[in-house]
């Protein structure tokens, strides 16, 4: 079985341009020429047996794509953060509240929030992603309908909240009450899925920097989510991205918001501990 999977990987990774593009580039990212982003740093301790250095996906993109994230006006994701702000101020639900009713301005109340999610919610007794927490607020405090997990409204709100933490290091906790979930996520990361028998690690740990057809494989870091992709010209929610990846191994995927993806998000986020929060980032 292992040989078969290796053949599949070899077939996918046409190595023609790999000699010239085998590594992340050397560019550095400063947003609007002033907000410096950490796109390369030492891997967190829990990864030390697998990787020495972690890189933002930004470093694997072409110059034209990189440029789109270097200026907040050129970044199309920012218009969705603006739409998120409209949603933030809108009263919805039976409690007659908006996000602003409790949280004031996002600039004050949401700084640092994106950097530490997913995290343990003591009251609920569960690990919550940022999307779950947004919906928790909507259903519990506003008595409003939850957003669909990967909807435009959800990614707009995630973008608004992420912007407040841009440049801060991702810093998710992996022990204590979240440890079991983190272990479950790690298990999924290294499990081969689908007819192609590919795990997350096969592409994003073993082969980052190589070409998968015409695409330059990144480490699959999620510090830039929600991510504006040129491919579909919209903000992409991280669980929707996971789904796309697993689908392309020709597997049945987990659902957005499922316990499996919550665990995977916690684990993958922790692989990026130390990189800057970039959301909304721009990728191909």
């Amino acid at each position: 079985m292992k040989f078969k999977a290796m053949t599949a990987v070899a077939a996918l990774l046409l190595s023609v341009p790999a000699m010239t593009l085998a590594d992340p580039d050397e560019d550095s990212l400063a947003i609007n020429g002033e907000l410096d982003m950490v796109t390369e740093t030492a891997a967190p301790a829990h990864l030390s047996d697998a990787l020495d250095t972690i890189y933002s996906g930004w470093r694997f993109r072409e110059d034209e794509t990189q440029a789109l994230q270097m200026d907040d006006f050129d970044n199309p994701g920012m218009v969705f953060a603006d739409l998120g702000l409209d949603q933030w101020n809108k009263v919805e639900g039976e409690a007659g509240k908006s996000c602003a009713s409790c949280h004031g301005t996002p600039e004050e109340s949401m700084k640092g929030v994106r950097a530490v999610y997913p995290k343990w919610n003591e009251t609920a007794g569960e690990v919550r992603t940022l999307a779950m927490q947004i919906n928790g607020c909507r259903t519990e405090n506003m008595k409003a309908e939850p957003y669909k997990y990967t909807s435009g409204q959800m990614t707009n709100m995630e973008a608004l909240i992420s912007v407040q933490s841009r440049g801060m290091p991702v810093d998710v906790v992996i022990d204590g009450p979240v440890q079991a979930t983190w272990e479950a996520g790690k298990e999924i990361y290294y499990t081969r899925f689908g007819q192609l028998e590919l795990s997350c690690a096969n592409c994003h740990e073993d082969n980052y920097g190589n070409m998968i057809r015409a695409d330059h494989l990144s480490q699959g870091q999620i510090n830039g989510f929600p991510t504006y992709r040129l491919k579909n010209a919209k903000l992409n929610q991280v669980h929707a991205r996971f789904k796309g990846c697993i689908r392309d191994t020709r597997a049945h995927t987990f659902e957005a918001g499922s316990p499996e993806f919550v665990a995977l998000e916690l684990y993958v986020a922790s692989r990026g501990n130390g990189l800057s929060v970039e959301g909304p980032s721009v990728r191909n």
């Binding site: 996918l12 070409m211 998968i212 057809r213 015409a214 695409d215 494989l217 491919k231 991205r241 796309g244 990846c245 689908r247 392309d248 191909n284």
Partner: peptide, 8 residues
């Protein structure tokens, strides 16, 4: 125009 990797 290049075609992406696995299309995910």
């Amino acid at each position: 125009v290049t075609i992406g990797g696995c299309g995910g």
